[in-house]
């Protein structure tokens, strides 16, 4: 091989390698599963349909015969338009798709802050979920929780977790996006507080550390942040329609940290002010840097 041929071939091969690399990268962008799907402009059900399709379809998360637990935010005795609880239409749509994907049982629950049965009723979630075929479980009795210990946790080293969460095959976290007086923002990770009994202990041991600790007990298989209606201030309880903005957003991700980081941008919060988000990222529980994520954006 002479020098000219060598140069020729090396340039060609370099070109080839770089092109192949680039096409491969492009393929991931379009064909591969995104880390985060952000949707805007549709109604709750339409955005969910498009979002889950972009995430690779419900079948990817719910296997045939699976036991599915859906954890919306049903914390307060407030009707849907006040944006204190997850949109009931979204919960119903997820339940239906879970059954369509072959789920054996779908359970919907939350450890409410107000009187549990009242929250279930007034939020419209009990009726919507039951209507779609789910079983709505009350979480007001301590005996329905099971004590679990986690050595890796830093503050919440033991917790009483709702039994159904521990026993399920697929755990879907469906929070509503809100301003939060104590934790700054309520999104994916904050919503998980409703899967344990020990809410007071979590507050006592510093939410900055206890909220990320929840991910050791059961990391959700899918996080769907409902931001169709957003509580911009006076959260998490609200009660004033002035505080509610109709943003028409939805975020889907398997990574609760990524979902929360994106959610903070929707509320225009400085992510540094959300301490539990910083903490979770520092512990490598997820990625908060949106530039490192493969994001699929869908305008509807």
């Amino acid at each position: 091989m002479n020098r000219r041929d060598f140069l020729k071939s090396s340039i060609l091969s370099a070109l080839a390698v770089s092109t192949i690399g680039r096409t491969a990268e492009a393929a991931v962008q379009t064909a591969g599963t995104p880390d985060l799907v952000a949707l805007h402009g549709g109604n709750a059900e339409a955005m969910w349909q498009a979002g889950i399709k972009a995430m690779g379809g419900m079948e990817k998360f719910v296997k045939k015969g699976a036991k599915v637990v859906i954890k919306p935010n049903i914390a307060w005795t407030q009707p849907p338009e006040y944006a204190a609880n997850t949109n009931p239409e979204l919960v119903a749509a997820i339940v239906r798709d879970a059954f369509k994907a072959g789920a054996k049982a779908v359970i919907v629950f939350d450890h409410s802050c107000d009187n549990g049965p009242d929250c279930y009723r007034v939020s419209g979630i009990a009726a919507a979920a039951t209507g779609a075929g789910a079983e709505v479980l009350h979480a007001t009795d301590r005996s329905t929780y099971r004590k679990v210990e986690k050595k890796e946790a830093q503050a919440l080293t033991s917790a009483e977790v709702f039994s159904a969460v521990l026993e399920c095959d697929t755990f879907i976290n469906v929070p509503i996006l809100k301003h939060h007086g104590g934790a700054k923002m309520s999104g994916a990770m904050k919503n998980l507080m409703g899967m344990v009994w020990d809410r007071r202990t979590m507050h006592r041991k510093n939410l900055r550390y206890t909220i990320p600790d929840l991910l050791y007990y059961r990391k959700p298989d899918l996080n769907v942040i409902d931001a169709y209606r957003m509580m911009m201030q006076h959260g998490p309880r609200g009660g004033n329609l002035r505080d509610v903005a109709t943003g028409k957003f939805m975020l889907l991700s398997t990574d609760p940290v990524a979902a929360d980081a994106a959610a903070a941008r929707l509320l225009e919060f400085d992510e540094k002010s959300i301490l539990y988000l910083q903490e979770a990222a520092a512990r490598d529980l997820g990625i908060k840097d949106l530039t490192k994520l493969n994001i699929k954006r869908i305008e509807m």
Binding site: R200, H203, R208
Partner: peptide, 14 residues
């Protein structure tokens, strides 16, 4: 200096 805010979180009247 531990952030908590449980009280404000539950206050129904703001």
């Amino acid at each position: 200096g531990e952030p908590c805010g449980a009280c404000a979180e539950h206050c129904p009247t703001g």
